[in-house]
């Protein structure tokens, strides 16, 4: 398949701070997830491929053309920025129609496209409210609407799920996946592995401004699954629960918390442990207050993968 986005030796510094270093890759149609901890260089990469900032070294080509100052390419690109900023005094409808006008569509076309985009993100009922009064989820969906309203071939989404509640996340994930089947190229960034996993199997891992790995998500999963995970459980009978866990071969260690009503479990198979939890709680009539995974963040996984 012909690559849509090509970067060659792409590097970017912000003064003395490295943003991105020597990134050479090709992105083909379909959904590609850009995964990395906060500050890894995901946003820098997306800003570079959308021509918002210029690389210090290297090139970006979109469908064979240089992107920087090539504004004609933006008729086929839709970009959803990470920042939660808008023209707050506009209504949702005015925001989408105003930006569509900049694509030189006719007035009726602008209205049809805006209506369609707002229907897709389910904001039609609230379209006449000022953006200032929108919830975070609605604002996120509005950003998505402006990115898809002109029916672009390439959609670039920077952390589209950040700050959303689980229901909001599900809606956006569903929206992104619905675009997958239409031959488009969708590039989506996140620092949460399960979010990317829910959208695509093709991922690029960025860490400290460098491409750490790229390919099928199963490969990354295999790497991550060998990393010991710590899970914390606050419950009514921690000792009884600990005795059950200790019998499992994939549980490496069990610690009691300071208040004796919490457990820290170290496992090398997080998925198996999570699937066991519900039956254990029900069978032993254990009341659970909280389950958290203290090191379940990408930074810990990356640190583990790079051997820190």
């Amino acid at each position: 398949m012909k690559p849509i986005v090509e970067t060659k030796n792409l590097s970017k510094w912000y003064g003395n701070v490295l943003g991105l270093s020597d990134v050479t890759l090709q992105i083909e149609p379909g959904i590609t997830g850009i995964l990395g901890p906060n500050g890894a260089g995901k946003s820098t990469f997306l800003k570079l491929i959308t021509g918002q900032i210029k690389p210090n070294i290297g090139t970006v080509r979109i469908k064979g053309q240089e992107i920087r100052n090539n504004y004609n390419l933006f008729s086929i690109i839709g970009f959803c920025p990470e920042q939660d900023f808008f023209y707050d005094e506009m209504t949702g409808w005015q925001f989408v129609t105003s930006l569509l006008k900049l694509h030189h569509f006719s007035e009726p076309d602008v209205e049809t496209r805006a209506q369609k985009a707002l229907e897709i993100v389910k904001l039609v009922e609230d379209k006449d409210r000022v953006i200032r009064s929108y919830s975070r989820g609605m604002r996120q969906r509005l950003k998505f609407a402006q990115a898809i309203a002109h029916d672009p071939e390439i959609i670039v989404l920077d952390e589209p799920l950040s700050g959303l509640d689980p229901l909001g996340r599900r809606k956006i994930i569903h929206l992104i996946k619905s675009y997958k089947g239409e031959g488009r190229t969708i590039i989506v960034s996140s620092h949460v592995l399960p979010e990317i996993e829910a959208m695509t199997k093709r991922i690029i891992l960025i860490h400290q401004g460098k491409i750490f790995a790229q390919g099928d998500i199963h490969y990354i999963r295999d790497l991550i699954d060998t990393h010991p995970h710590i899970i914390s459980i606050k419950c009514s009978n921690a000792r009884q629960l600990a005795s059950k866990f200790i019998q499992q071969d994939y549980v490496l260690k069990v610690h009691f918390g300071s208040s004796n009503d919490s457990l820290l479990i170290e496992t090398n198979n997080r998925d198996k442990l999570f699937s066991l939890l519900p039956s254990l709680f029900i069978e032993n009539k254990i009341k659970v207050d909280e389950i958290t995974s203290p090191d379940d963040n990408l930074q810990a996984v990356f640190d583990y993968l790079v051997g820190r």
Partner: peptide, 15 residues
């Protein structure tokens, strides 16, 4: 300052 520039610069119009 309002960080809205991105909405304009990702459109097919010159700066």
């Amino acid at each position: 300052e309002g960080q809205t520039l991105v909405y304009l610069t990702t459109r097919p119009i010159s700066k």
